[in-house]
Design a protein around this nucleic acid. Structure first.
Lengths: 177, 177
DNA sequence: GGATATTTGACAGTATACTGTCGATTATCG
DNA sequence: CGATAATCGACAGTATACTGTCAAATATCC
């Protein structure tokens, strides 16, 4: 694609090159854009998680919700969504599925008639404990191809990115830590 | 949380600490796991993209598909999915919407009766050109809170991560570059 | 105390993303 | 050539993720 300095390409060729180079993005550019790289990283991370946790029939989001409910018994769905940076609408469906599998129970709050409070069940707790190793394996596998120093660097940079952009998402993290 | 070496805590306290520390992950741990950080980064990246591109009614995936079709006229959906690392099933729905908006046309291949070939329409091309600035603004905004050196480092690490983990996903990148 | 604003869960609608399956078609290999 | 493989688009099913809306309930302000 490098045009030799001395050559004089035809007008059509010039126009085509200008179009590709200036007016629109090329595929090669796209693959180096942050949004595209993050999307692919997410695809990979989810695939690895699902593979490792196949025995437990748990998605990443379901696992995070279970851990959060285990650590914060008696919270409502809205507060929970802020604890794990989920969208509130989405979390409703997630909790519905967890409740249907009897991993979590929902009961009305005595203080606020709008609110339903959450508790993890014994089965839910057992599942979290049993899935622990698989989850850790998945997290390790995601970073495995990188050199140890690069793993730490990536985690630091992603933490920074997510923290500094926290308010952009509809589901900002609040109240944890 | 660090138990002093010389102290002898009660049995209940020991059991509770052991449960939290060894048996199950804590929320704090979860927030530093690669899967969780990548998921939040993806939420943020999509939110910023949608905000910047609201005028053009384009999602990140739709934009990528349009760019890829523009650069590879006459490919089929399966080859396209490999070019941008999409799932083949998902891409079918995306193309359906783009076709309904007349941004892309699908026509049968003369060589293979199974295949439908893709071309971007004039309107599709115009939209890609017009959205260009907004897309670049979005990509810049995602990394904006980081120091310039950190932006480059993050892009390098993410590129490495997705490249080395390419085969894990159902939608590995193939044929681009 | 009463109008107003906010919060909560729920819902409808849209879009990505994956699994698995299907029939039709094409390619491959014995 | 003919059985078998592989591939293609399409579809059903499930799960995340967002927008926007709604009614009920609660909180706040004048």
């Amino acid at each position: 694609m490098h045009l030799p300095q001395g050559s004089l390409p035809t007008a059509t060729l010039v126009r085509r090159v200008v179009k590709q180079r200036i007016e629109t993005m090329q595929l090669r550019d796209l693959h180096s854009k942050p949004g595209h790289l993050i999307r692919r990283a997410q695809q990979i991370a989810v695939a690895i998680f699902m593979e490792e946790c196949a025995d437990y029939d748990l998605t990443p989001v379901q696992y995070a919700a279970l851990v959060a409910v285990l650590e914060n018994p008696g919270t409502d769905a809205t507060r929970l969504s802020a604890l794990i940076a989920f969208d509130r609408s989405t979390l409703g469906n997630v909790l519905e599925r967890l409740e249907a599998r009897k991993l979590v129970t929902r009961y009305p709050s005595p203080d606020d008639k709008r609110v339903k409070l959450l508790k993890i069940s014994a089965a839910g707790k057992t599942l979290v404990v049993r899935a622990q190793d698989a989850v850790n394996r998945a997290q390790d596998r995601i970073l495995a191809p990188l050199k140890p120093a690069d793993r730490r660097a990536l985690m630091r940079l992603l933490s920074e990115l997510v923290e500094l952009n926290n308010d952009v998402s509809r589901a900002p993290l609040r109240g944890a830590d």
